[in-house]
């Protein structure tokens, strides 16, 4: 279990992470969601003791990372697949990591087998594709057979096959009873991968809930109604106290499902040409929730006005 309490990191006047508190439960995949620049990587680096927090703390099973003895046995992490010397072979990279935590040498071959890199183990890591680099990074994270795993944007830039592989892999790790904490800026990806979600924007916590709850709460379910004589229906809907929005020729109703609207239409003797449920997209919902917290706003619609730059972190 990972626990962040009041975690804060500032670079000069800029707050990259602002009093962030959350917990990552055992045995589940927890997504760490936020737009680019929201402070996800900084938070993960603080959990791993690479960056020192300005305030607050991050604890792994009640201990600070730097107090862990041979930490690879407790926590495995893939923050950046490129943290490998390009002229060193995949096997040598894993060998020095294993040795530093007194892990048996045969474990290197085991993890290479798990991620499917056995055939290229003696090739230089600099020649690896992004997908292979990610697998090597995951192999390094698994070396110490840790109970807690952190992955920073593991599917970024991967092809669909790679994405699917990683997604299944995360589920398997969680089913084995491990704590899996994985960051992403894509809600649609997290909706498929994570059971729990920690959502941040501009370094602040926006929500922590199960993915199901988050998606249900975030996406607004509406019904589109189209027909030649909607006036009567509109007043009936108005009396029922639901919100109505005009969209061209049709009404978009939220707060009442298709069945109820159909009944109402029958009672008011309204002819309908369309009655269809609409599901808001996850992306839209995510934008809505984190909209105020995106670091760089661009105002595409406003023509000549230059993009407004909000002072950046780092």
């Amino acid at each position: 279990m990972i626990e962040a309490v009041g975690l804060t990191k500032s670079y000069g006047k800029t707050l990259a992470v602002d009093n962030l508190s959350f917990s990552v439960p055992t045995g589940r995949v927890t997504g760490f969601l936020g737009p680019n620049g929201a402070g996800k990587s900084t938070t993960m680096r603080m959990i791993l003791g690479l960056d020192t927090p300005t305030g607050g703390s991050a604890l792994i099973d009640g201990k600070r990372y730097r107090d862990l003895h041979q930490p690879l046995r407790t926590v495995g992490a893939l923050l950046d697949a490129k943290w490998v010397h390009p002229n060193r072979s995949a096997r040598a990279h894993l060998q020095w990591l294993a040795r530093s935590n007194q892990l048996p040498a045969k474990r290197v071959d085991e993890v290479l087998e798990i991620v499917g890199l056995t055939a290229v183990a003696n090739k230089r890591a600099g020649g690896f594709s992004l997908g292979m680099s990610q697998r090597l990074g995951i192999a390094a994270a698994l070396l110490g057979d840790p109970q807690v795993l952190l992955f920073d944007e593991p599917v970024n830039g991967l092809d669909p096959e790679g994405i699917l592989w990683i997604r299944k892999f995360m589920h398997r790790l969680a089913e084995e009873g491990r704590t899996v904490f994985v960051s992403s800026h894509l809600l649609s990806e997290m909706a498929l991968t994570a059971q729990e979600l920690v959502v941040i924007g501009r370094g602040k916590l926006i929500s922590q809930s199960s993915t199901e709850d988050f998606v249900a709460q975030a996406t607004e379910n509406t019904v589109r109604v189209r027909g030649p004589q909607l006036a009567a229906l509109r007043s009936a809907l108005g009396q029922a106290g639901v919100s109505i929005r005009d969209e061209g020729e049709s009404l978009v109703v939220s707060g009442m499902d298709c069945a109820d609207i159909g009944e109402l239409a029958a009672r008011t003797q309204t002819v309908l040409h369309e009655l269809s449920p609409q599901r808001g997209s996850l992306e839209e919902a995510f934008m809505q929730l984190t909209g105020d917290s995106v670091e760089y706003h661009t105002e595409i619609a406003d023509g000549p006005t230059p993009a407004t730059l909000v002072p950046a972190g780092k």
Binding site: L48, G49, L50, P71, A77, D80, V84, H85, N101, A140
Partner: peptide, 18 residues
Amino acid sequence: TSEYRFGTIRATFQAVPN
């Protein structure tokens, strides 16, 4: 310096926090 350049210093400090 090559460890800083390629980021392996972070992997090192991750494996050996001291």
